[in-house]
């Protein structure tokens, strides 16, 4: 297990390195770094000082090393707009995004697993067909448009839910959270559902496909031949096998959810990293963009690592391979 972990960590580090090189090349080599990293409002003197300070007069490979060195120390540049370290800006807004993404994941599992299970057990029932048709819709509906429609119905027409912002928050572990107050929950309801929509469809389909495939397995028939109750066959023999692919995909999708929160946060003016990055792109606050990109890469790699480890805990076969 330690060897397995070590190897995965090394791989992860390698990917971070490659991605940092890609980001570096994207920002420094293809674009004009002076334009990217120095505020367009800066005067001639400031520009030259900044060029020196940033080492832009050095050869490219040395510049990369400087960039890497700074990045390792958590220095990813300063925002032009807020005049604060870009990393700090992102970290401040991260909890809001995480709150949304975790909420969406939980919601997707809570809704998707039972529906998928039902659709898989009774593939020809009218309700199953309805569930599957809805899930096609969930895949097809453009997230931002659904968000707009949610606002139109629940905020404008019915006036039940607030359309923007985080609402009342409570401070816990040094950050503010919405899910601990009723008002916060009301503010969270629509964005969470909006963000979860795609994942609900995904979980439904994965679960259904898994159930249908597993039901045909000899070991399920054997379990039935042992005289077990249908509930035990379904929830122990079938469900545990399905959980593995579902957990893997949902885990891997977590990064995608955070990425997609860019859209949801823009629609609902949710003050997370996604809203920050769109605002930054619109005002060309490039250090924030670079920092965001690096943070996302890091996040993705962490998620992959965590999923891998969880997977090995769930599936005894993988665990054994890791040992040997």
């Amino acid at each position: 297990m330690t060897v397995f972990l070590l190897r995965r960590l090394l791989q992860a580090a390698a990917v971070v390195l490659v991605m940092s090189l890609l980001v570096f090349l994207g920002v420094f080599a293809i674009g004009d770094p002076i334009e990217i990293l120095i505020s367009p409002e800066a005067d001639q003197f400031e520009r030259e000082r900044a060029i020196k300070a940033l080492g832009l007069d050095l050869p490219l490979w040395q510049q990369y090393l400087v960039f890497l060195g700074n990045a390792l120390q958590g220095d990813l540049g300063r925002s032009f707009v807020f005049n604060e370290p870009a990393l700090k800006l992102i970290l401040e807004r991260m909890p809001a995004t995480l709150e949304l993404a975790i909420g969406a994941t939980v919601l997707a599992l809570l809704i998707g697993l039972p529906l998928g299970l039902y659709a898989g057990l009774k593939p020809n029932g009218a309700l199953s067909k309805g569930i599957m048709a809805t899930s096609i819709l969930g895949f097809s509906l453009p997230t931002f448009w659904v968000g707009l429609m949610l606002i139109m119905v629940f905020a404008v027409q019915l006036g039940w839910l607030p359309s923007t912002g985080r609402g009342e928050t409570v401070t816990l572990l040094g950050t503010r959270w919405s899910f601990l107050t009723l008002d916060g929950l009301a503010h969270m309801a629509m964005p969470t559902l909006n963000l979860a929509l795609f994942k609900i469809s995904l979980v439904i389909r994965l679960t259904r496909a898994g159930v249908r495939e597993t039901m045909l397995m000899d070991y399920v028939k054997f379990a039935r031949a042992k005289g077990l109750s249908p509930a035990r066959v379904t929830f122990v023999h079938v469900f545990k096998n399905i959980l593995i692919p579902v957990v893997t995909v949902v885990g891997l999708e977590f990064g995608g959810t955070i990425a997609f929160s860019v859209v949801t946060e823009s629609v609902f003016a949710w003050p997370g990293m996604g809203k920050l990055i769109i605002d930054s792109i619109n005002v060309l606050d490039r250090p924030v963009m670079v920092a965001y990109l690096m943070m996302i890469v890091l996040l993705f790699i962490t998620i992959n690592l965590v999923v891998d480890i969880t997977y090995s805990l769930l599936d005894p076969r993988v665990r054994l391979e890791g040992k040997s």
Binding site: M217, D218, F222, N241, P316
Partner: peptide
């Protein structure tokens, strides 16, 4: 059953 590799639940 026929195939012992398939009759026991792997997990």
């Amino acid at each position: 059953f026929q195939d012992p590799m398939m009759t026991l639940n792997p997990v």
